[in-house]
Amino acid sequence: MKKELNAVNNISKLYKEISSILRTARANAYKAVNFAMVISYWSVGQVIVEYEQNGNERAEYGKAVLEGLSKKLTAEFGKGFDESNLRYMRLFYQTFKNCDTLRHELTWTHYRLLLRVKDETARNWYMNEAAKNTADICKILSGRM
């Protein structure tokens, strides 16, 4: 009976350790994929801005470009590439000119919200707070806090 109890306790400890490893791995994989998408959206914004600046009548020409681009991207890659989101990607690039300053902890949703904050100092403060709190949440979820 005592051996069985020890075996159950050992399995519980082993399970707890392994499940912690797997949760951490999944959280890290999610963050890596998410940040790859953030960088891709920044790059899409960069390409759109550079293309528009070489165009003729920027406002009307840009609208037609985004409309056609949206249709083609949505057909191939699915939802998430409507004109509104493409405008956000363009604004994302214009607001965060240096992609090296982007925070790995933040999602595209975080950045879309940050784009609403016009004051750069306030936006940076919110960005750092969101990154700090997201990191804490990841630690909690992985059982490391």
Score class of each variant (00 low, 15 high):
7 A>R: 15
119 D>S: 07
77 F>L: 12
82 D>Q: 05
112 R>H: 05
97 K>Q: 07
25 A>P: 03
7 A>F: 11
8 V>D: 10
53 Q>K: 13
92 F>V: 02
71 K>E: 09
25 A>Y: 08
43 S>P: 02
112 R>Q: 10
11 I>D: 15
33 V>Y: 07
122 A>H: 12
82 D>M: 01
18 I>C: 12
14 L>V: 13
13 K>R: 15
28 N>D: 10
104 H>K: 14
8 V>G: 07
67 E>V: 08
56 N>Q: 14
100 D>R: 09
121 T>V: 12
38 V>C: 02
107 T>M: 00
68 G>F: 04
8 V>H: 10
39 I>Y: 05
88 Y>K: 06
47 V>M: 11
53 Q>T: 06
108 W>H: 04
78 G>Y: 09
80 G>I: 03
66 L>D: 03
94 Q>C: 06
26 R>G: 12
110 H>A: 05
93 Y>A: 00
64 A>Y: 06
113 L>V: 07
74 T>N: 08
112 R>M: 08
77 F>R: 06
126 Y>E: 07
112 R>G: 05
32 A>K: 08
58 R>T: 14
122 A>L: 11
118 K>M: 11
45 G>C: 01
116 R>G: 10
22 L>G: 05
21 I>H: 08
59 A>K: 15
5 L>V: 15
44 V>C: 04
73 L>I: 04
43 S>M: 09
76 E>F: 09
14 L>Y: 15
34 N>L: 06
49 V>M: 05
30 Y>E: 14
122 A>D: 09
67 E>D: 11
114 L>E: 00
107 T>S: 10
70 S>K: 03
53 Q>D: 09
35 F>S: 04
91 L>N: 12
115 L>G: 04
53 Q>Y: 04
79 K>T: 12
52 E>F: 03
105 E>M: 06
107 T>V: 02
106 L>Y: 01
122 A>C: 05
106 L>T: 03
48 I>A: 02
37 M>H: 10
112 R>K: 12
44 V>N: 01
44 V>H: 00
52 E>Y: 04
87 R>W: 06
123 R>N: 04
